[in-house]
Structure formats: structure tokens, C-alpha cells
Design a protein around this nucleic acid. Structure first.
Lengths: 156, 156
DNA sequence: GGGTGTAAGGTCAAAGAAGGTCATAAAGTC
DNA sequence: GACTTTATGACCTTCTTTGACCTTACACCC
């Protein structure tokens, strides 16, 4: 059931979890070799799974001695929500990015599982389908409202 | 009586009954193969038999490694959530009624304070303002989706 | 310092692998 | 015979995987 992309993601997360410094260095070719796949598959995994919304930053370098540098973004929990709203949400938000962000907030223990699932139910395409003006606009608005609510001091 | 749809339903129920987690993962193609039928027949069964009203929720994923995820909902017909759901069927929902409902669910300890506030933020007039088709319609839809989520057995 | 060879990683389009939808045919039911 | 439920097939959308081709960095040589 677990496809290649998921297995590669798992592998990278594993290594990252064991990294003292919060980042790891990998080589694309080596990784592709380990999983016997096309090198560009690694890019696909990085592009879809190790996104900023999910709390990762990827840098790379080409040429001899090239590498991939994958970082976990550590932000203090207090600032995380505000940061998310400013940097990541904006006026329009796709389901993919919304889900990535919720995943991240859950991993940081800012949301409970139930809270995350409630929010996913709302922000899903099926939930906001057929809406005017544009579901990405509404999604951004609702996400901000929910996160703002969680920042209220009386909810600590 | 033992038509194809009924037999497929029975098969899925059987597997689901043995699932600790309250959900199962299946593949549409595999299932269609087992019963030598068109894949869309599986959708027919899911659409007619594994509905929210009957206590199930279905999610899916396309593409390589795709699946169907069929979840059981905890259903107690006299429960507050079920009562609320019945009222929402085919209905529209004002902010006042929505808030009232959330209040009761909180008092009955079905919702945490945070959950209640998240849901209020979503269902508020300011949240759904300027939306087409009609904010009361959308509010009912979103409320139903949230309540359904709360019934998922895998969130216990 | 400027070629140039080699060793990385990047991009993008197309093929493949799922599941979804909808109109229509077939089978039951009354 | 009319209505409802079930079943199929053609066509669509989404997600994954691959491969051909491109760009960047370094090393080495002259």
C-alpha cells in the first residue's frame, strides 16, 4: 500500500529525527540508488512532502560535492501561529497547503487530533465546494479565523 | 436478495467489524476484481450503503498507492449529536441556532472549550459573510461535516 | 585566467496507477 | 407498464513515477 514516495518520506523523516543539529545532508543520487528509482523522484518527494507549510526547508547545491540539505524549522510555539498566518496563508489557500499546515501544527502539539480533523473537515474541497467567491479565498479566511481563535488567552 | 451490491456490502461490513481501529483500507480495483464487477460498482455500494446516515464515513485517495478508507461512526440514536444531525438534514442553519447547539454540546462535555470556539469562529456571520449560496446553507453543511467528524471511532 | 571534463542537482512533459462521475442499460418490484 | 434499484462502460481527475534534457559547481590542464 505504501507507495515509493511515502517510503522515501518516511526514510528522510527518520534520519532527520535522529539529527542533533536539526538538519541533514543527503545526496540525491545516493538516495535514488537506495530506492532504485529515478533521481527526479527524490525531487518529487521533497516538493510534495517537505514543504514550508509542513515545517521543512530544503536547500541544495549542484556540481561535485553537491548535496541536499533538509532542515526542520523549529519555531517557538507561541510565534508559530502568527508566523503561519502572515507567511503562509495570505488571501488564498489551497487544500494541500492548508492540510500541510494543519499536519505541522498537530506535530508541534498545538492542535489535538480531534481539532485537526475538525479543521480538515471544514477546509476540505468537498466542504467548500461550489462556493463563491472562490474556495481558496474562503479557505484562507476560515483558517485565519480558527487560528486566531486558538491564540486567545482565555483558551490556554 | 443476494445481489451483487448486497454481497459487497456484507463483505466490507465483515472486514470493518474485525477492525480494532474503527476503520479499514481497501483498494477499489482489488475489490472490483474479487467480485468481478465494474469498479464503479464499488462506488455505488459506498454511496448507497456506507453513508453518514448509516454510520459510516468514506475517504479516498487517487493515484499510485490510492485507497478507500472506510470509517465507522459511533452512533447512538438518542445522542445529542444525532439529534442535531437530524435537524440539519436538508436544512439551513442560522448563527443563533448553531451557537445554541454548540453550547449544549459543550455543556454535555461532547466538545472541549477550544473545539467549541474553533467551531464558533467558523460558523460566525463574519466568517461566512458574503458567501454564495446563502450563508445559512453553508453553515448547515459545515456543521454537519464537523459533527460527523466528532463521531469517528478512530478519534476516540 | 580560460577552456573543458565530470559530477552533481533541477525541470518538465508524458506515461502509469489509482479512484470519481455520469449517462444509460438491465433487473427487480408493484 | 411504470417506477426504483442495480450494474456497466466511457470518460475524467488526481497522484505517482520515469526519462530526456538542462544548469551549476568544481577540478584540472594549458
Amino acid at each position: 500500500m505504501a507507495n515509493l514516495a511515502d517510503r522515501i518520506e518516511e526514510y528522510i523523516r527518520q534520519i532527520l529525527a535522529g539529527a542533533e543539529e536539526g538538519f541533514i545532508l543527503l545526496q540525491r543520487g545516493t538516495l535514488a540508488n537506495i530506492f532504485s528509482c529515478a533521481p527526479s523522484q527524490i525531487n518529487y518527494v521533497l516538493d510534495t512532502r517537505f514543504t514550508v507549510e509542513r515545517g521543512f526547508l530544503v536547500e541544495s547545491r549542484r556540481g561535485g560535492g553537491g548535496y541536499l540539505r533538509i532542515m526542520r524549522l523549529e519555531i517557538n510555539p507561541d510565534g508559530l501561529i502568527q508566523h503561519a498566518m502572515r507567511q503562509l496563508i495570505g488571501d488564498s489557500l489551497s487544500q494541500e497547503r492548508a492540510y500541510g499546515l494543519l499536519e505541522r501544527l498537530y506535530e508541534e502539539a498545538i492542535l489535538t487530533l480531534r481539532e485537526r480533523e475538525i479543521m480538515k473537515a471544514i477546509l476540505a474541497r468537498e466542504g467548500l465546494g461550489g462556493i463563491q467567491p472562490g474556495q481558496d479565498i474562503i479557505r484562507a479566511r476560515l483558517m485565519k479565523r480558527m487560528l486566531t481563535t486558538l491564540c486567545r488567552e482565555d483558551l490556554e
